[in-house]
Design a binder for these strands. Sequence first.
DNA 1: CATATTGGTTACTTTTAGTAACTTACTCTA
DNA 2: TAGAGTAAGTTACTAAAAGTAACCAATATG
Lengths: 140, 140
Amino acid sequence: METIVDNQKVRITKKLEKMFAHIDYKNPPALCPVRDVMSVASDQWSTLIILWLAYFDTLRFNKLKKYVYGISNKVLSQRLKALEADGYLKREAFPEVPIRVEYSLTEFGHSYVERLLELTEWMQKNSPKVLANREQYGLQ
Amino acid sequence: METIVDNQKVRITKKLEKMFAHIDYKNPPALCPVRDVMSVASDQWSTLIILWLAYFDTLRFNKLKKYVYGISNKVLSQRLKALEADGYLKREAFPEVPIRVEYSLTEFGHSYVERLLELTEWMQKNSPKVLANREQYGLQ
DNA sequence: CATATTGGTTACTTTTAGTAACTTACTCTA
DNA sequence: TAGAGTAAGTTACTAAAAGTAACCAATATG
């Protein structure tokens, strides 16, 4: 049992090393691609947009807005553009009247969802614990 | 081979169902715990703070600030407080002169790192692709 | 001829983030 | 003994981002 836990620790340490060992914090890169990519894909609204698109396969602007409740037209529009630009989703416009626009994930977007779900699943499972922690902290 | 891919799809669909099936978008909850928890833990700066703490085990304020380069005192201080409140890390102050304060992950924080790393690893691996996508999109 | 529709955009306000100077309390140096 | 230095922040101010609500085009319907 101990060895399994230890193995996991070693695995995590290796991943962290791969991620950080090469970084010279005295000469930090002006533009870090990972941060840049993260800021689009891991944004809160983006996360919700991507997950709902994974769930429904295809959604139109106003439907998406209903599911990702609380988002404004402006921000939804901005996020969709950014996510399209980064290759997570595609936009298809049909020249009907009124216009119909369908959004759906690309293959790349689907591959991201696999990882993203691990995280949001964890969030869902642990949110009661976090809220309890937070309340306790507030009482101090 | 096909069945493996199919199995994965089924697994993802199940996860999505578990996450979304119960949500009535016509009566969205005013406060969604998952969103709330996500907004603290998945914030960009928080992510970097947590990962550096996972890498070094213990870091003091100013060291952390150097590794999480670009962050301001104000935001670092805010994030540390929020992450402490939510139970991801603990703060230990030693009454020396000048004061010494050490930050380190809790067990809960470490359990989060496991999931978080999956995501940031993916980001690191795929950031060139994203940047390429973005450039292509810009040319259109 | 007014109204409704979809998928946005625009101008304006509020919230959040970033910048840089300041604080506290003690120690070390000149 | 005045002056500088140090760690871990805080504070006042400015810039950027997000939220709000009204508006738009082009056409169909009542």
